[in-house]
């Protein structure tokens, strides 16, 4: 679930950071960066869709590698 957010964040940083210098635009974009995933989550929660936490995903990955208790 947060994976979406992660990718999103990475893309945003790489893309817009050097280009946009104007303060207000920057703030707006950063705010949107958090609000849009938030809205997606809210939508998912309302629909009742259960999303895997990224920790769960990594845990499963680690378990497949054999690093787990």
């Amino acid at each position: 679930m947060i994976v979406i957010g992660v990718i999103y964040l990475l893309i945003m940083i790489m893309d817009f950071y050097p280009i946009i210098k104007h303060k207000k635009v920057k703030h707006l974009i950063i705010n949107l960066m958090f609000i849009i995933p938030g809205l997606i989550f809210l939508f998912l929660a309302a629909k009742g869709i259960i999303v895997k936490s990224w920790i769960t995903i990594i845990w499963e990955f680690l378990k497949s590698l054999g690093i787990s208790y």
């Binding site: 679930m1 947060i2 957010g5 950063i30 705010n31 949107l32 960066m33 958090f34 609000i35 995933p37 938030g38 809205l39 989550f41 809210l42 998912l44 929660a45 009742g48 259960i50 999303v51 895997k52 936490s53 920790i55 769960t56 990594i58 845990w59 499963e60 680690l62 378990k63 787990s68 208790y69």
Partner: peptide, 27 residues
């Protein structure tokens, strides 16, 4: 806006809290 993100994420997270606890404990 960060707070809004945290709020929604916490709500989504609570839906499968048992699996999450297990993952948090072991992974």
């Amino acid at each position: 806006s960060v707070g809004f993100f945290l709020m929604t994420a916490a709500i989504v997270l609570s839906a499968n809290s048992i699996q999450h606890t297990l993952a948090a404990q072991n992974g």
